[in-house]
Simulated scan of single mutants.
Amino acid sequence: MKLPENIAGFIKAQNDLDSTAFANYFTAQATVSDEGASYSGREEIKQWIQAATEKYNMQLTPIDFTQTGSKRKLTVEVSGRFPASPIVMNYHLELDGSSISSLKITD
Results as ranks from 00 to 15, higher is better:
residue 2 K to S: 15
residue 4 P to N: 03
residue 5 E to V: 13
residue 5 E to H: 09
residue 5 E to D: 14
residue 7 I to V: 15
residue 9 G to N: 07
residue 10 F to P: 00
residue 12 K to V: 10
residue 12 K to I: 10
residue 14 Q to K: 12
residue 15 N to E: 03
residue 16 D to T: 08
residue 16 D to C: 08
residue 17 L to M: 11
residue 18 D to Q: 05
residue 18 D to H: 06
residue 19 S to F: 02
residue 19 S to E: 01
residue 19 S to A: 07
residue 20 T to I: 11
residue 21 A to Q: 06
residue 23 A to S: 15
residue 24 N to A: 11
residue 27 T to C: 02
residue 28 A to C: 09
residue 29 Q to T: 15
residue 29 Q to R: 15
residue 29 Q to G: 07
residue 29 Q to C: 10
residue 29 Q to F: 14
residue 30 A to D: 01
residue 30 A to V: 09
residue 34 D to K: 05
residue 35 E to S: 15
residue 35 E to Y: 15
residue 36 G to I: 11
residue 36 G to E: 06
residue 36 G to K: 15
residue 37 A to W: 12
residue 37 A to N: 14
residue 38 S to W: 08
residue 39 Y to G: 06
residue 40 S to N: 14
residue 40 S to E: 05
residue 41 G to E: 02
residue 42 R to L: 02
residue 42 R to V: 07
residue 42 R to D: 04
residue 43 E to H: 07
residue 43 E to M: 13
residue 44 E to K: 09
residue 44 E to P: 04
residue 45 I to C: 03
residue 46 K to R: 13
residue 47 Q to F: 03
residue 47 Q to C: 01
residue 47 Q to N: 11
residue 47 Q to G: 05
residue 47 Q to V: 08
residue 48 W to C: 05
residue 49 I to Y: 00
residue 49 I to K: 00
residue 52 A to G: 10
residue 54 E to T: 11
residue 55 K to T: 12
residue 55 K to V: 07
residue 57 N to C: 13
residue 57 N to M: 11
residue 58 M to V: 15
residue 58 M to C: 12
residue 58 M to G: 08
residue 59 Q to E: 08
residue 59 Q to C: 10
residue 59 Q to S: 14
residue 60 L to G: 04
residue 60 L to R: 03
residue 61 T to A: 13
residue 61 T to M: 10
residue 62 P to D: 08
residue 63 I to D: 08
residue 63 I to P: 11
residue 64 D to T: 12
residue 66 T to S: 04
residue 66 T to G: 02
residue 68 T to I: 12
residue 70 S to Q: 15
residue 71 K to D: 14
residue 71 K to L: 12
residue 72 R to D: 11
residue 73 K to S: 13
residue 74 L to G: 01
residue 74 L to E: 03
residue 75 T to V: 15
residue 75 T to G: 04
residue 75 T to P: 00
residue 76 V to G: 02
residue 76 V to K: 03
residue 77 E to R: 09
residue 78 V to E: 04
residue 78 V to M: 10
residue 79 S to T: 10
residue 79 S to I: 08
residue 79 S to Q: 13
residue 80 G to P: 01
residue 81 R to W: 03
residue 81 R to C: 06
residue 82 F to A: 07
residue 83 P to M: 10
residue 84 A to R: 10
residue 84 A to D: 09
residue 84 A to L: 07
residue 85 S to D: 00
residue 85 S to V: 07
residue 86 P to H: 04
residue 87 I to E: 03
residue 88 V to N: 08
residue 88 V to G: 09
residue 89 M to C: 11
residue 90 N to K: 14
residue 90 N to L: 07
residue 90 N to F: 07
residue 92 H to M: 11
residue 92 H to Q: 09
residue 93 L to E: 02
residue 93 L to H: 00
residue 94 E to H: 08
residue 95 L to H: 04
residue 95 L to T: 13
residue 97 G to A: 12
residue 97 G to L: 10
residue 98 S to K: 11
residue 98 S to L: 09
residue 99 S to A: 09
residue 99 S to Q: 12
residue 99 S to G: 03
residue 99 S to L: 12
residue 100 I to M: 01
residue 100 I to Q: 00
residue 100 I to L: 04
residue 100 I to Y: 00
residue 100 I to R: 05
residue 100 I to T: 05
residue 101 S to P: 09
residue 101 S to F: 03
residue 101 S to C: 11
residue 103 L to M: 13
residue 103 L to E: 01
residue 105 I to W: 06
residue 105 I to T: 10
residue 106 T to V: 13
residue 106 T to S: 13
residue 106 T to L: 06
residue 106 T to P: 05
